[in-house]
Design a protein around this nucleic acid. Sequence first.
DNA 1: TTCCGGTCCTAC
DNA 2: TCAGGTAGGACCGGAA
Length: 1118
Amino acid sequence: MVRIPPAPIKKFEDLPLLVKNRVIGLLSNLTPEIRLEYLQNDLPEGELLEQLTGAWLYLKDISTISQSGPTCGLVALQMAMQLIGASLVAVDDILDKAREQGYTKNGEMYSTSYMALLANDLWDSSVVSCVSHFPSASEMVSHLHESTAILIPYDCDRNIEPALRKGHSAHWGIVVGYLLVDTNEKGICTPTRESISQLPINSPNLYLLIAQGKSRYYGLHPYILLEKSNAQLYEAEMSPRKRRPATPTTGSAKRAKQEPPEESDLKSVDPNEFEAYLKKTGSNKYDKATWQRPPIPHGVLQLNSVAIQVFDIETYQENGGNDSYDRTNVKLYGVNRESNSVCVIVTDHFPHFYFQAPNGFGAEHLEQAQRALNNQVSNSARRGGTSATMSQLVADNLIHLKIVEGENLYFYRGSEKKYPFLKVTGTASALSKAKNELRNGVNLMGHGLVNVGTLYEANIDGEVKFMTKTGVVGCGWVEVPIGKGKIVPDAQKLTRCQLEIRVSVKDLIIHDTEGEWLDIAPIRTVSLDIECMGRRGVFPDASEDSVIQIANMVKIEGQSEPFLRVCFVLGTCAPVIGSDIVCCKTERELLEQWAEFIRIVDPDILTGYNILNFDLPYILDRAKVLKLPQVALLGRQKDKASGVRDAVLSSKQMGSRVNKSIDIHGRVIFDVLQVVLRDYKLRSYTLNSVSYHFLTEQKEDVDHTMIPTLQSGDDQTRRRLAVYCMKDAILPLRLLDKLMSVINYMEMARVTGVPLNYLLTRGQQIKILSMILRKCKANRFFVPVIEHQGNDGEGFEGATVIEPHRGFYNEPIATLDFASLYPSIMIAHNLCYSTLIQKPDPTYVKDQDYIQTPSGQFFATRTRRRGLLPEILEDLLATRKRAKNDLKNEKDEFRKMVLNGRQMALKISANSVYGFTGATVGKLPCLEISQSVTAFGRQMIDMTKSEVEKIYIKGARDGKCPINAKVIYGDTDSVMVKFGVKSVKEAMEIGLDAATTVSKIFPAPIKLEFEKVYYPYLLINKKRYAGLYFTKPDKHDKMDCKGLETVRRDNCPLVAKVLGTCLETLLVDRNADAALNFAKKVISGYCIFKNWFLDLLCNRIDISMLIISKELTKAGDI
DNA sequence: TTCCGGTCCTAC
DNA sequence: TCAGGTAGGACCGGAA
Ligand SMILES: Nc1ccn([C@H]2C[C@H](O)[C@@H](COP(=O)(O)OP(=O)(O)OP(=O)(O)O)O2)c(=O)n1
């Protein structure tokens, strides 16, 4: 039984010391008189409100300080938070404005800015629940329902001198109580006794009112509707137009009598009561038909072809039965334009690998070779111990050999001549045996064992192999034309897809991703969140703690809101408008019903927050504990249960990360946490802080300890829990939408060719490899299996960082920067595996046919042979160019951020082509290439520096250069130049000139670009600097900090904040003394930071500003 | 006290 | 089986 907290009956002085101190602390930058008055003098309005509500806080006559209104509001919010146990933060808009206008004025922080910053930081992890904005009070009132708190404009300035009031029409204030708003003749809303009594709802839960009006700085704020933390927020949000029907008063009376359930009762539901409840309330009246996908159109493959966008790919062994051999088929799971789920089974794809034909091998040896290999393979199969007959073994392990022409990808051999290779085809198991046999030697030509040396493409994933050979790309479209393929009747289907088609690879049309095939199919995404019983202080353990709720949101890609909300609840649960609530008698029923729901809804993408490592494994573990095999049948493959494995992905880019790996065949697990972890560097990755960061919306967290209480309460408390649970299920959808993750990932999948799920479960290598394999296929190259050379000593030399001339530059510093340096080097110099020359031999390469790189390697020029890597890079750079163009045309700041992430991801993929060649633990290491790239890079930055310093000497360029230009710093591909000019405009002109001039000494497409001007520029050390960033002459875009504590996440926020403020003072105000003083003051405690700093330490209110967190990558001894 | 290697995170 | 690269600063703790 949950006790709804009563409206607090407290005067300020009766508040807990903590609250009092905090409020005093927060107010301490107001003048002492004001503070005194505020604390001591009751005002008529205050009395009125006190009578009504108990506690009140009225801030009078504080207009003498700037931004007093919002300041009061924040204080009020802070108090509100304490009083109602809720966390309310309404600072975002103030904060935004503060950011817009700058935090400081004459070196001093605006009180508002300070308050907003402070509040933001202190409450970073708190709950914000700003539900809706309303243009008018009356409209807002029409949306009120129980447990709603309101922000209304409340004129707090009426008693102050008109002169003082000038510019301040109202301030924020707070009333703890419930009130109705009224609009007076001046259009100012004031709560009155009458209006209060007329409040159209009768709710004991409504007890917060915060007033806010016009401020001369921030204009008129809209009414903001807030809810306290245990309010039924979700409903208001889901269906703002609908009023909740009045709850019968008998309910609460009955509930009050009910005894709190015993601990042992927590998990079980009384079956009789449950049935009675269902009967009485008519619950569980949802319609499963609404969960289904749309029906398949008539005339499939007769009237219409079937085109699907492919989301998941899987190879599998199909037992051919007695009369046939096993085969490897490929399932392409996808969705057509009608939103049907379709599985296209490609039945005649055979995995294969190659080896170079031994010397003298000809077509006449094929039969002997094939026989010898097949013998050895089936012998080895028999040694493996099996009950199968010999003939069956032979059939199952049939190997086929074929002579094909091609060339090892590595090295240029002087011509385009192709060499004979043997292509080995067979089932996956036969192939792996064949690989072993070939390594040991096979009597291929009838005169003894032949060792064939390197195998080619023998270590490539079946899925990637299929895709690269056929040209299918991740998230690309394939089509089965009319009259081709065979529809599998329902009874014989292997999958739960609506449509299953078996087709030969030669009948499958693979569309290039262009035109109409750029579209995105109407895919279904289910976002889910579970709640578990849990015990105090113990993390839920699947072997003990039951799953009590599973909330699901179903959305179709492209639509903004979910069309289906289904929550599975253990026990009875009051209805939630707009949602299907499925009350379940037992946990078993809950889990099985949910699994069935997933099978009916048949989503293509499963999402949620940390579902990969928590929710899904928990459900599956729980199913195991309870012995519910049906629950594990979540995938589309009928006979395959979903299982959980531990998978560790370690890379230098992302460190070592232990993840679970769950196979839900045919569905992609698109965990938002994984997306955010990969794409954004944040200080905290909780759903709460991520939502706040991107959506300025927070999750409604139920205290974990509350969950069992809510669960073991009644249908109303479980309803409340369901509402929270659903909120947690919808936030991931919102995040995906806002961050455009699905779209961006699809683009990446299409460009690199890998399946969607690889982008979240694997690294950069597979993308590059996929692109290389595609180019190899087109150019008849074979990728050799490189034996992993156990740490072959040294790595290779990287880039140059020019020794910085440290100092503070109170003059414009121009920055020149090569566009995509390493990719352009590789393109310009045609660096590739296939152009690398081991040792130039005059018999096949003339001097003009190759170059020697600064690191001493030789590569054929493009006139002899175009490298594959340069082609890949051109594709990637072209895509990036489009992304950058979209970025340039975008106006919205948030979308800009997202698009920037997109172009950055493409840039990293392009740079990873170089990284791939340097990855010694990779599939295709080639340090010759990576070494040459960095060597060219080093040469180029040196040339750029000397060129700039040579050309732009005093008096050069028609006297535009006042002094000898000096390169004061540079890193890898950039130089920071001091031209000695006075204005940003001049620096830009010379910078632009230098960029075009210096570019000319480098071969295309290498291009030096003028990027920006820093003015002023503070150069602290290598990779550590700050400056005001100018891209247009008149105003700086931002303050740019590189490598400094402000951008590092391994120190506490206090350090970052103080340093940030110092730098701003230094760079924007150019006031070194003030910056220094500020720092000193912070340290000695004599500035506006003092109060909260002391407060922080003395009262231990919130130590979030002092928390240092770092990742632990190496597991030490515990 | 200085040096060095390990760790973390960042700039390219 | 999987895993893009190198350079480098700040900080810490232990050895010299
Ligand atoms: N994650 C990264 C970033 C950079 N580099 C290397 C390759 C880049 O070509 C070079 C320069 O890095 P920049 O950050 O300046 O990026 P680019 O020059 O590639 O792109 P652009 O300057 O066009 O944004 O450093 C890299 O290997 N990996």
